[in-house]
Design a binder for these strands. Structure first.
Lengths: 197, 197, 197, 197
DNA sequence: GATGAATGAGTTTTCATTCAT
DNA sequence: CATGAATGAAAACTCATTCAT
């Protein structure tokens, strides 16, 4: 009936998406391979056909999430041309991820809490932070070249931006406050523009 | 040898500390009641004599961690008298928690990742954030009365400070970078002083 | 405060009554020594001061229940003088135990189901049946002497009466029907009077 | 060797039979899932593949026992044509269940004692009683139509028959008397024929 | 006499993984 | 490729019993 060959990429993606839904619905430690199989409408056995084991699958889930977010940021920033537009686009994208892709920070939080006990996760997450950091640094260098910002140590700036974005997202994941959220996001953008300039 | 009556407070504390060590060593989802018992040098049964179940115990572990950190902040800020001293003490204390009590943010991260799936944790963590937030708001009001800062919306400020502190701590928990850490902490203090004033 | 010596019979009775309440409330396999202690408002330790172990205590509970019921039957029958009065009193007492002492058959049912696996319970229950059986046989012999009934094999009669009474009680314990109960009790008395005469 | 797909009905039956043996050998509260697995020569895990939990399995064991007995009664009565033959077949079947299927009443007794504390068991047992009761009532109605018995209130009759049969069976389960058993069974049949006619 | 703290074996249940079909 | 049956170790939790105080 359904095609039986060349299913590899399709099945892998199907299983990864099912696993994401499980993380979002139950949390990283609280679902089984059976849960993933049910969510993906597959048998448990087939998962082991496409992934070595559960841990491997879960690492791939994280990589997939990171890849999506990196592409989103890249796309939004690439549309802008000048430093001012780029930095604005970047900060706004970061500030709006929780609204546009609410699962992202939830998934990140789940993996982040496991990273201190798992070197592979540590590596994958560190690389993601590094990539985003270098991305900001690239923008800042443009600003410096354009002469619109002072020379800054780009690394701490990048870290502070990422940290603040992550901290805000986690804060709201747990408290469910929404009242001051917009004000916070505006302030977040303002603070860092002032900090840089 | 040891007394057989009135052990309640001693044992509860002993078990809570053992559980903390397990969280720090293995992560919230990766240790068993048996591990806690071994760490506390007690039998598994006695844990159920003092705690209803594992979840209850783990909530008490979090409450204990929060209580310690709240007392630390309180102590450091109370020693200061003027607004300037107080806000400096507050920001520095928050910035230095990762050094003075390195386990705190690791434990917090573990629980934070479970909070979206657990209403009791959500409540406990929200209350902690609220307490710390109100604490900052109190300091800011002093600054306004003293006429040394402008009138600010205290709630978003408080949230941003907490979020940034948490974000930085988590960032370093996972990346193990230490190079730019001091610079980051200094900038953190500077950013928020500038933001407020 | 409370007397500390000569407590033996009082404490034993207190514990036995608490155990009865536990059986009635939860069923023989579903309560612990701690439950009994709580019900009796005593510590767990004290129970082992008065009873060898849980099994021993539970046997004593059954003996106590049997003793109460035997005394009730004895009292009601002794008040009657003639055979006709005695047999009527006997059958009515047996029929009315479920109303007058609703716990009795519930407790009996609990122990009966354990008897096939426990020789001591088997002995205690057999003796109870034997006592009640001999009691009926005594009444029947009076009837024969008075010339008001034919010569019957008393043992089967006794067994049938006991069995029927027990069966009816258990039937209603489980079905909670109450509609036809009175009719049943009347028929029970009638059937056996007819059967004997 | 054995097929690996479509084992459901075979395994379920295999597990149910193993559980029955455990009840007969040890009594409802005194065996573990491990005991059932050992008896069925399976792993403990597989039991949870086919049954939700122990309670569910045990309910299915009871239903299976009831179903067997209902079929036995049905078969024996259906072979008879007239009222006289049917009522005789019914009473004799009921009287002989303890001999032909000695485990049935032992299993029933085990469950009966749990029914007061378990609404599902209550429902299942009540329904069984109801079915058997309606079965007798059907026979009695034939007798009335044929004009060979008087008009009786069929429900109390049915209850009395069931109660007596159950009571006798339990009586002998516990006392192990066998001397007067045949006499009792004969009297049981006689009593009820006389009672009806 | 009385307390309740402590033990540890035993219970039910879950689950990653394997593998015959 | 795909299924789902099977395993068995490990988890949380219970509880009769003992014993220092």
């Amino acid at each position: 009936m359904s095609p039986k060959v060349g299913m590899e990429p399709i099945r892998r993606q199907q299983i990864i998406e099912a696993a994401k839904q499980c993380i979002v619905a139950k949390g990283l430690p609280h679902f089984s391979i059976k849960d993933i199989a049910k969510e993906a409408k597959l048998s448990t056995g087939v998962i082991y056909h496409y992934f070595e084991n559960k841990d491997d699958l879960l690492v791939d889930v994280l990589k997939s999430s990171f890849s999506e977010t990196e592409q989103l940021v890249q796309k939004n920033v690439d549309q802008a041309t000048s430093y001012h537009e780029k930095i604005q686009a970047y900060l706004e994208t970061v500030a709006e991820v929780p609204d546009q892709n609410p699962d992202f920070y939830l998934i990140l939080l789940n993996y982040l809490s496991q990273a201190p006990y798992n070197d592979e996760l540590k590596r994958v997450i560190s690389r993601f932070f590094l990539n985003l950091g270098e991305f900001i640094e690239g923008i800042l260098k443009i600003g410096f070249k354009e002469g619109v910002i002072k020379k800054v140590e780009t690394k701490p700036v990048a870290n502070l931006i990422l940290s603040q974005a992550m901290g805000i997202a986690f804060y709201y994941l747990v408290t469910n406050e929404t009242v001051s959220k917009e004000k916070i996001n505006r302030d977040f953008v303002e603070i860092f523009k002032k900090y840089i300039e």
